Amino acid sequence: MLAQYVYPSKFGLFRIIRHGRQWRVLHEEQEIGRHDTAEAALIATRMAYPQARLPGELDQWRYIPELALAHSRVSSEGTRWSLAG
């Protein structure tokens, strides 16, 4: 997954994800649109979900850079922990 903006709301998790040259918008796990810029994605999402009260500026969303996502992945070896007791 690439760089993304994330905002949790009462209506679920919203994400704006860079996907190649476009930005995908997801509400929970469902894609709700693709846009040329992150700002256009934000505007369209706010218009589609006014009840979610999403912030109007991307700097108010949590930004997760691509590099951070790459380092947060856990290998299949790392998920085989033995339980104590």
Rank of each mutant, 00 (worst) to 15 (best):
A68V: 14
A44Q: 11
A84R: 13
G85P: 04
W23Y: 15
Y5N: 03
M1Y: 04
S9H: 00
Q4R: 12
L2A: 13
R80M: 10
E77W: 08
Y7D: 01
A44R: 07
P55T: 00
V25C: 08
G78W: 09
S82W: 14
V74P: 03
D59H: 10
M1K: 04
Q4H: 13
I64E: 12
A84K: 06
L26E: 12
I64A: 15
R46L: 08
A52G: 02
R46G: 08
P50H: 08
R24Q: 15
L83F: 04
M1Q: 02
A3P: 11
R15F: 01
R73L: 15
R53W: 12
H27Y: 03
A52E: 01
S76E: 15
E39T: 07
R80D: 08
W61Q: 06
R62N: 10
V74K: 13
Y63P: 05
L54I: 03
A3D: 11
K10G: 00
A48P: 11
L13M: 07
V74N: 04
E77Q: 10
I16A: 01
E29P: 07
I32R: 06
A84I: 10
Q51H: 09
L26N: 10
E28L: 04
Y5I: 04
G12Y: 02
E28S: 04
R46N: 13
L2D: 13
R24N: 13
P65I: 08
G20W: 03
L69E: 15
P65C: 13
Q60W: 12
E57A: 15
A41F: 04
D59S: 09
E28N: 02
A44P: 14
A48G: 08
I17M: 03
R34H: 00
S76P: 14
S75W: 02
E39S: 06
E29R: 11
S76W: 14
A52F: 01
G12K: 02
G85N: 02
A52W: 01
E57L: 15
R24D: 14
D59N: 09
R46V: 12
E77L: 09
W61H: 07
W23N: 12
R62D: 13
Y49I: 00
W23L: 11
Y63I: 08
L2E: 14
E31I: 15
L42D: 00
S9W: 04
R15Q: 09
P8T: 06
E28P: 02
L83P: 08
L2S: 11
A40F: 05
Q22M: 14
G56A: 02
H27E: 01
S72F: 15
